[in-house]
Amino acid sequence: MKLPPFEYAAPATLDEAIALLAASGGTAKALSGGQSLMPVLAFRLASPSLLVDLRKIPGLDRIDIDAQGVKIGARVRWRDILDDARLRTAFPLLPAAISHTAHYQIRNRGTVGGSLAHADPAAEMPGIAVACDAQLVIAGSTGRRTVAAADFFTGALSTVLADDELIVEVRFPAWPTARRWAFEEFAMRRGDFALAGIAAWYDLDSGGRATNTHIGVIGACTRPQRLAKAEAALNGKAVDAAAILSAAKAATESLDPPGDLHASAAYRRSLAGTLLERALQRASS
């Protein structure tokens, strides 16, 4: 489990990093926290010609909060999110979800941009990005573009990110204080990849009915996604036991998860429904 041979560069600017990626013709890999990439290299599942270490690039480690919402730099680490007291009111769903991400040591190094680019369907950050209508700011050889999280993930470990592009920032719209929300995750052990996870939120209209419902799923899917039928089952309704059950039923019916050595497809489907039920019970209580 020794790493394969590769060249290493730690450029001082974003432009240099992009230039190095572009020059490699797709054989270089960006290195951020390394918490997914290093195991991949140790197993020799990839042998990039060059690792472009992003650690010296300034300005990517900021968390900015204003009336428009929350901007999180690509090099922000999990522990930065958990340590930022502002987020607990400005965007409470995010730290609640990230508290499930891996273990202490990994949270000290793993980064937001790395997780989004890696696109593990069981990871929390991609799931929250999709469930919360996040926009990803991406820089590349031809300039910057902004992509909706919903369009960014194309499959397991697969995104629209080009070889010469880097994620710079993820932007979340503002979070109203009155919003009802919950995050539920189930893993074999705390910190393991989720067998399923649900992020659910909605606002209440003047009649106390759910509106603007967003339900995102991780783990029980090949990419993080929203569950439109479950959302529709809740919108316009008081979030009571019956509404919750119908949303959970819609969720399980609309999921087609893969099975693997840890859990069957049927289990994951059922689990996602159970977690949604529990999330909505918590959000509505």
């Binding site: 074999m188 859990a263 069957s264 049927a266 289990y267 059922s270 689990l271």
Partner: peptide, 11 residues
């Protein structure tokens, strides 16, 4: 007795 196995047993 992993969670998926016990769940399957109950089903």
């Amino acid at each position: 007795l992993s969670p998926p196995k016990i769940w399957a047993l109950i089903q």
